[in-house]
Each structure stands twice: as structure tokens, then as C-alpha cells.
Design a binder for these strands. Sequence first.
DNA 1: TTGTATGCGTTATCAT
DNA 2: ATGATAACGCATACAA
Lengths: 356, 356
Amino acid sequence: MSTPGSGAPRRATISDVAREAGTGKTSISRYLNGELSVLSPQLRARIEAAIERLDYQPNQMARGLKRGRNRLIGMLVADLTNPYSVEVLQGVEAACHALGYMPLICHAANEVDMERRFLQLLTTYRVEGVIVNALGVSEETLRPVGDGGIPAVLVDRSVDGLVTDMVGLDNEGATTLATRHLVERGFEHVWFVVQPFEHISSRRQREAAFHRALEQYPQVSGRTVVLELGDADELAQTLSGLDAELDAAIAAHEQREGAGRAPHVALFAANGPVALALARHLNQRHGPDWQKRVALLSIDDPEWAELAGITTIRQPTYDIGYRAVEFLHQRIDGEQASARDCLLPGVLIERASTMR
Amino acid sequence: MSTPGSGAPRRATISDVAREAGTGKTSISRYLNGELSVLSPQLRARIEAAIERLDYQPNQMARGLKRGRNRLIGMLVADLTNPYSVEVLQGVEAACHALGYMPLICHAANEVDMERRFLQLLTTYRVEGVIVNALGVSEETLRPVGDGGIPAVLVDRSVDGLVTDMVGLDNEGATTLATRHLVERGFEHVWFVVQPFEHISSRRQREAAFHRALEQYPQVSGRTVVLELGDADELAQTLSGLDAELDAAIAAHEQREGAGRAPHVALFAANGPVALALARHLNQRHGPDWQKRVALLSIDDPEWAELAGITTIRQPTYDIGYRAVEFLHQRIDGEQASARDCLLPGVLIERASTMR
DNA sequence: TTGTATGCGTTATCAT
DNA sequence: ATGATAACGCATACAA
């Protein structure tokens, strides 16, 4: 019976290879770094053989220490539970692959201490840059990063007081697109549902854009509902209240107009997690036919959205991640331009929820 | 206007701190490693001040190089798109935090080359161990790992020819539990739907356990349906075929028994992604009332399951991740026991789908 | 074309 | 109690 243990019998080093090949470490190093033109064919062959025999693999840590850069970049994700984050990650990974970086993925799991801890950790590992999907509670946490610290690119949201590149959704455009869609489909009431703003810029922007967009349509009434997803009790309570108001609105409407065939109020979820919370609640309360009472539209297009048939604004998540790495790469390369914002457009996916 | 650049003005090193504090590097090192008892109070104070002034943070790479261990472990995830993986990850992260490791998360995105590449990368970064949720195409890919290589723990599935610890769901128990549930609820036909087995042990085990469990209930007929999720065309085709057979089964049943109030055939999805594919298809084909035609049960309990009202077997994902790190930690510490399997039980969550 | 020597930032060994 | 000094594994300036 075999016993897997820490049986790692010390990996071969460059010196070992040099000895095995009967040469100096320099030649090995040259071989590793592709300076082939400067090596005689026979030496090169001996080196190759030695590497093969010893199963040698250069130690990246040592390399990084020596050359002063380790090709590591940190990717700090606020919440991997959110499909949005995973999609962005895919773009990040692809770009890292293309540009020769290795991404260190850190997951803050919505905990501020985790965010701080990982940021700290990443700097002690001397990553060359970080991509941060920040909790954004305060710029204090992010001090080691950005201006004067290690290069950073923010994703999805900016942080007050932090001067860095940032790439994310064009919130203004996306929100306007969605709002106009709802108005055109004839909804008379639109309720914008969003998590507590805290310092998360994208939430603020979307909410502001929503009301700005509605100003053009005085016949439609809009309001904001804040939903705290973290606290189950508070969530349930808020949702109950919301439901009651919905009842009232529907009753009033039917009294005036008679029972309509389609809902006249729409819920506009600021992001996927909010939409899921709403859908779960409505489904539980009113059964699978809840969409006959109220329509649901969401920014973010998680996989279940198609199943549920809700209309969404899909974000260019992959591109967001990819661009973020490109920006970071430029900074690492010494680019000195002032902080840039890269806003990418969302696309509307219309589903049964808002079809009349 | 501020310009975030690679303005990182070279971080302070231990020598800088020594000079600033007017002492030798050794004392700084001692301070950093908590050998406080051996430092005079005044020297200690000077060191603290110097560190503060220079904002010094020890370079983990250099430390790792010197001591021969860097507290890094790799976590190779097959598919982050699968909520199962993210949940396992949470457990891994928690355990790493508790045990003082930093997890390097790598995402193979279901690509075998990625898996190989990341494994290679992890070894060159000299991680002390790896947790692998393998694609498992062949043990060849995983050669650098496990027996003789760096310590490894497999998650969810084992790989033929690879001798390592492994932790995952008790597939036998979970599948039996689910099967018995369906039988007790009176279903007469149960179709087990699973992705192509390839080398993924958990899929095989679940399928085998399903048929084994059904042997005890001769009145119920069971069969296996293989669903290739990767190829959209093939998927659509298979699903159409499945749907036609479903029609036939329902028609035959109604002819014998008259139109029933509840479905008499149940689909048993081997995991969450399969369940989602099935639900999407059925929903698209038959509308939100599809559950009146056929019941759906799934191993894995993704968030949308409650929304859709399908019965599931929830895996102890967090524990799986946590235990994996504990195992790895023991191996890293030199534990030599022979390869262990840790099988954790799943729990049945009954929802509308299978209630009569 | 090839090898020697030095140093990256840290810890460990040995003095003092 | 404190401090020189030699490694760790590698890359590079320089010498041969």
C-alpha cells in the first residue's frame, strides 16, 4: 500500500542541473531564459538531458526575488457567490494568460476584514498589481494600493478618495435603457430595488440614473426600495412590507381600471442577488404565477434568469475583466497617464416578464 | 491631477529597517519572528518605530525562499461556474485562514490544458500542497502531484491511478436516499440524468448507486440518460429526444390510468448543472407549469433550486473544503498514513417538485 | 561560447 | 542581548 506523504525529496535546483550537465549555473540560466543562440549545440543537449533526468523546474520565487518582478497579480473579489464576479474572473484569467501573469485570486466573501487581510497578504507577496472588486467601505482599507502603492485597477465600483483606473458597466446607459424599456412596455409604476448603498458607487449611480431617466416620463411613478440581503430577518420584514404595498397598488389599479391582463407595476432590481431575493420571495408567497402580479427586470443576467423568464441587462463581464488586466499591465509597464475610467455598455435581454 | 503609475518607490527591506533603527538585520528578523524575550525593551522600541516610519512589510517570497516553505497551497477548481465549487472554496478559505495558509486559487474552466498548466505553475511556485477538484481526464496530467510529488488532496472525485487522500460526498448514501425518496413518493419511472462519465468517479458512482438502489424496488423502472452540456447543439438534440420519450411515457400512462393529478415520472439530475439544463429546457418547452408533467430532483442545492421548487440533496460543501485543507495540513506536517477517503453525508431537501 | 562572482531579502549559525 | 556572515535558488555584470 502506497503512502502519500510529504515525501517530496527536495526538488532539484539549478546547481544540481549544472553539476549533472557538467557545466556552470550560468549556462543553465541562459538556457532557461531562452538565450539559445549563445549556447553550443552539444552543451545545450547536455543541459536538456540533465533537466529531463532531474525533472528540474525553476523556482519562481527565487526568480522573482532576483529580477524584482514575479509576474503575479492579485485579484480581490468581493463575492464569488455572485455569478457576475465569476464571469469577470474568466476575463481576468484569459488576459493574464495572454499577458503572462499569474492571477492570485482572493475572496473577501463580503467581509471587510478579509478584504484588508488579503490586501495586506498580496502586498507582502509583492504582487505587481491588483484588480479590486472592492467592498469599498473606506479608502483606508485600500491604502496600500493605488496612488503611491502598488498599481491597482478597480472593477465595477470606484472608491471615494482612491485615485486609480476603473472599469465597469456604463451604469447611466444601462439604467436608462432598462427604464425606457419598462416605460415603453406600459408599466405605470417602477420600483427600483437596491442593496444599502454603503460606499458602493455603482449602486448609487444606478439609483441616480434611474430617477433621472424617469424624469422624462411624468406619467410613470418611480421609487426606491432598499433591501438588506445580509440579515435574513430584516430581509423578510422588508419584503413583507413591499408585498403589502404591492397589494395596495394592484387593488387601487383594479378599482380604477378593472382587472387587467398584465401587471402594471415593475420591480427593477439593481443587480442579480437582489433579483434573486425578490424572485424567491414572490415565488414563495404567490406561487409560480407571481409574474402575473408584477414584472421583474434586473441588471445582471445570471443563469437562472432565463429559467425564470425575467428581463435583464447583461453586463459585458468578460470584457470588464479582460480590460482591467490590460490597464493594469500598462501601469506595471510604467504608464503614467492619469486615472482612467472605462465604461462598457450593457445589453437588454427581453424575456416573458416584460412582454405584453 | 494625480497619476497612479508604477510609482512604487521600492519597498523598504529588512536592511533599511536595520539602518533606520541603528542595529543589525538579525535583531529585526528576531522581532519579526516574535522572539521578543531576547530583545531589550529599548531596542524593541526603536525597531517598532523604524518599521512604522518605513511602513515596512517583510517580503514573503524571500522568507519562503530562505525557510523552504512559503505557506502557500494551491486550490485547483474545475469549474467556478458551478456553485458547488464556490461553496467548497469557502470551506477551504476558512481552513486556510485558521491554519495559516494562503490559498492560490486556480480555475481550470473545464479545460484540460488549463488544468495541466496550473498544476505546472503551482509546482514552480513551490506550493506546499494542492487541493484538486480534477477534470480527471488522466492521471498523466496530475503526475507532478500526489505520490512522490507534492502532497495533494482530491475533492469530489478521485482519479484512477492516483494515490491520494480524497474528500467528497457519500455518493452511495446520497443517491440511495434520493432514490428511496422518489419511490416512496410513488414515482413509477425514474430517469437518472448525468453528464458523460469521462473519468469522473463521482458521476460513475452515483449512476451505479442509483441502479443498485432501484433493484430493491422492482415496481419502479429506471434508466440512465447521458447529457453533454458542453455542446449546445448536441444538448438541444438530446433534450428533444428526452422530451419525446417523456411524452410517450405520459401518454401511455394516461391511457392505462386516466389523467393523473401528479406526474408519475421523475428526473434525477446527477448534479446542479444538469438540473439547470433540464429545468431550462422543460420551462422553455412547456412553460412554467412543466412540473405538472414531470418531477425533478437533483444532487446539489444551488440557490435557484428553491425558486424553482425542486427537491435536492444538499452536499456538505463547506465541510468538504475544510476537511480537505485539514488533511493536506497533516500531510504537509509529515503524516505518513496511507491514503484516506473521507465521505460526508448529504441531506435531503424536499420541495414542491416531489410532494404529492 | 562559457564560467565566476555578487546580490535579491530573508533566516540561521555562529560568534561576541 | 546583539551582530556579522553565510546560505536559500536564481539572474546578471563581468571576466575569460
